[in-house]
Computed example of a mutant assay.
Amino acid sequence: MPDDDHGVADRRGVLYPARLPTFHRIAAPVDLAALVRWFWIPEWRLEHGRISRQQLLPFPASNLVVGPDGVNLAGPTTSSSHRDLVGSGWAVGMLLRPAAVPTLVRDPSRLRDREVPFHAPELSAAVTAAMATPDGSAGRELAAAACAAWCAARLPPPDEEALLANAMEDLIAGDRDIVRVDQLAERLGSTVRAVQRLSQRHVGLPPLTTIRRYRLQEAAQRLREDPSVAIAQVAADLGYADQAHLSSDFRRVLGLAPRAYRRDAEADPRG
Rank of each mutant, 00 (worst) to 15 (best):
F118L: 03
P21W: 00
R193T: 13
P17M: 00
N63M: 10
G189R: 11
R25A: 05
P17D: 01
V181G: 02
E266S: 12
S228I: 09
A129T: 15
R213W: 11
A267Q: 08
S81T: 10
H245S: 14
H119L: 13
P2N: 11
D170A: 10
G13S: 06
R251F: 11
S199T: 01
D226A: 14
R212F: 03
P117C: 11
A235Q: 02
A129V: 10
S109K: 06
N63F: 07
L142W: 10
G75F: 02
E266N: 11
A120Y: 03
L85G: 01
Q200I: 08
Y261W: 09
L163W: 07
P60K: 01
R114A: 05
A132I: 06
V253D: 08
P60R: 00
S137P: 09
H119R: 14
A185C: 02
I231W: 05
V203D: 01
I41F: 03
P29G: 07
A219P: 12
I51K: 10
G204N: 04
P42G: 02
L15Y: 07
N72K: 14
T191H: 05
G255P: 04
R25H: 04
A162F: 00
I231L: 09
Q54H: 09
P68D: 07
Q55C: 09
L15R: 06
P206V: 09
D182S: 13
Y240M: 03
R12I: 03
L238N: 07
A165S: 05
P21G: 00
G7F: 06
R97E: 07
T22S: 08
Q217H: 06
R251H: 12
I26C: 08
D5Q: 15
R53W: 15
A167Y: 08
A126C: 02
S80P: 05
P76V: 01
V8S: 13
S81I: 04
E225G: 08
G189A: 07
A129Q: 13
V14F: 04
D249T: 14
V36N: 01
P206H: 12
L35Y: 02
R259T: 15
L164P: 08
F39P: 04
A125F: 05
I231P: 06
P258H: 04
F23H: 02
V101G: 00
T77Q: 05
P21D: 02
A219M: 11
S88P: 09
E43W: 09
I51Y: 12
F39R: 05
M168A: 12
D31R: 13
L184N: 01
P21K: 00
R187Y: 13
